[in-house]
Design a protein around this nucleic acid. Structure first.
Length: 307
DNA sequence: AACCCTCACAACCGCACTCTG
DNA sequence: CCAGAGTGCGGTTGTGAGGGT
């Protein structure tokens, strides 16, 4: 799994992309004939070794192009057609949680590809949000107006101290370091996960663990279908589902509902992720990120100590 | 009919990660 | 440990269709 902060790191070496830019390589839209050749070849010989695939299959395309065409268009599991309203709603909520992690979002929407969701976002949803006065990047109001009840309904609840993703790389660990002065409470993921999930730790899920799986693209998940049967099957998915559902709940109820106070094992006040989000001490994205990571040193999932 | 503009979507590109020898 | 191959991801660009003038 790629380090989520790696895009900011300096590239260690500069490797060209040999399959691209070659003379004699066809570019542009794929023809039905090319599609048929590619699909037939993959049916026969399977995916992978994309760089040499075009030559083996007899296509004048670069490997990347073949892979993209297969992943985004030709795969049998790819769903075509319009994005349904419920899918749109899910995309919106996932984007609020995950930002432009299109492959993560796509992994939560069966049959949809990261490219399709990205395109749909850029052409439809971002404009829709802007027309509603919401910044599509931050999901915050473009023109904050405290008197606008409409804005308050839609806008996410975020910690004003945490506008820029305060996730620290700590030996491969991304830990939410949310704190808020004068307010003491602790949030853990214990109220979200069964204990055994936490106790197992992500180290016990080397290739098909719920968390890594959740962080992989949809097509990667398909590649690992043989991993089903693991008791920890997609714990990340369950968690994300709970976040998504909680998120809806928070948005609907934030103005009028007081959630019951939960007392932790040592008497400390405990809150759920939705309450923490509601509280403004941690954003949805921070919860999602931190929940999706584990400490490589002790193999334990991160918990939140917001005190 | 011709041209221009906008939109939606497919495809490309560069970067960075993992894996392997 | 290193170098290169293979691959995935996200931003950007290209292309074709449709509508307006």
């Amino acid at each position: 799994m790629r380090n989520l902060s790696s895009r900011n790191s300096t590239r260690s070496r500069s490797t060209p992309t040999p399959c691209c830019g070659k003379v004699g390589i066809k570019r542009g839209p794929w023809t039905p004939e090319e599609d048929e050749i590619l699909a037939n070849y993959i049916k026969k010989d399977g995916e992978g070794r994309w760089r040499t695939l075009p030559k083996r299959a007899g296509l004048l395309r670069c490997g990347k192009s073949c892979r993209l065409r297969w992943m985004n268009y030709l795969r049998p599991s790819v769903k075509r057609g319009r994005i349904a309203p419920d899918e749109e709603d899910l995309i919106l909520r996932l984007h609020r949680l995950l930002g432009n992690r299109w492959s993560l979002i796509a992994g939560r929407i069966p049959g949809r590809t990261d490219n399709e969701i990205k395109n749909y976002w850029n052409t439809h949803l971002s404009k829709k949000l802007i027309s509603q006065g919401i910044d599509p990047r931050t999901h915050k109001p473009l023109y904050p107006n405290p008197n606008s009840s409409e804005t308050a309904k839609i806008a996410p609840i975020q910690n004003p101290n945490l506008n820029s993703f305060p996730l620290e790389a700590n030996g491969g660990v991304y830990r939410a370091t949310a704190t808020r002065e004068n307010e003491n409470f602790t949030m853990t993921n214990l109220d979200q996960f069964p204990n055994q999930v936490i106790d197992d730790g992500a180290k016990n899920w080397p290739n098909c663990d719920g968390f890594n799986k959740g962080l992989q693209s949809h097509h990667e998940q398909n590649k690992e279908e043989d991993c089903v049967g693991n008791e920890n099957e997609d714990a990340f998915s369950l968690f994300l589902d709970s976040l998504i559902n909680e998120n809806v709940f928070v948005y609907q109820q934030q103005q009028q509902f007081q959630q019951p106070k939960i007392i932790g094992p040592s008497g400390e006040p405990m809150i759920s992720s939705s309450q923490a989000i509601h509280h403004g001490s941690i954003s949805e994205a921070e919860v999602a990120y931190s929940m999706a990571t584990f400490d490589e040193k002790d193999g334990a999932l991160n918990s939140y100590d917001l005190a």
